[in-house]
Amino acid sequence: MIDISLQKPTSATTSEDRLQQAVDTVNQIIMGKEQQVKLAFSCLLARGHLLIEDLPGVGKTTLAHALATVIGARYQRIQFTSDLLPADILGISIYRRDQEKFEFHPGPIFSELVLADEVNRATPKSQSALLEAMAEGQVTIEGETHILPKPFFVIATQNPLDLAGTFPLPDSQLDRFLLSISLGFPDPRIERELLTARDRASVLEDTPPSLHPEDVMQLNESCRQIHVSEALLDYVQALLAETRNSRWFESGLSPRAGIALLQCCKAFAFLEGRDFAIPEDVKAVFPALTRHRMTVPHGMEKSVEEQISGLMGQVAIP
């Protein structure tokens, strides 16, 4: 487990500027993945948790690390394994002989940014310990409630292919993640740069934080102020209604997912530097919001991604 020591944020005037600087910084580290980086920041600004589903080695951990670095958050990584126990995540109470009482030792979850690596390798018991903490923002151990820090941001990774010995997360728990992204392989041009440039880890070490955790809280607030027009709401509703048509998915998006969609959309618009949301914002976040929540009906030879883009192509923008 790595503990990043807090560094002072660089001096940019407003929190918006500092956010822009943070995004730029991450983009310098994770090269060629602007859209995914933007989505990751949207998720952060919408106070959601992020799920990254991808193969090993494409930069999942680096992205999480970079995010932690630029927002100046305390960062913990938990490698999920099949023998991981809930106490390994949440912490444990140890009896102190000298003081003749139990003392709570907080687990890695008590950080502002937690990277839950390969979250589907752990047993459901451990998974739910994490996911409950994500939902509640607090941890209750032996009758004592411990508040988690704010902001509290979990990035979980999953390997979608290597399924042997894994416990796939149930739908109800996947719903705790606001967005799910996959990074994918880089362009040949970017890959050449990766091969020739400095090691990412050492770049990260030299990177100063752009934001302060308090900034994140303030930016969260700003995102809520983004204007959403009636026309845009019509579009969001049309999309939600279309997901409930059985030709796309087993079941449609819930109203909670609808609210989440709108929040992400506002955050995305905010990142774009606008004070109002447009249909393109919805279209940008919709796949990331939908893909881990939906399943394709039985017997349909289509991937979720294909269905999502097909669906978006069918819904006219009002």
Binding site: I278, P279, K283, I317
Partner: peptide, 9 residues
């Protein structure tokens, strides 16, 4: 054009 296109798209 396609009705599902956003204006900027």
């Amino acid at each position: 054009t396609n009705p599902s296109m956003g204006p900027r798209e």
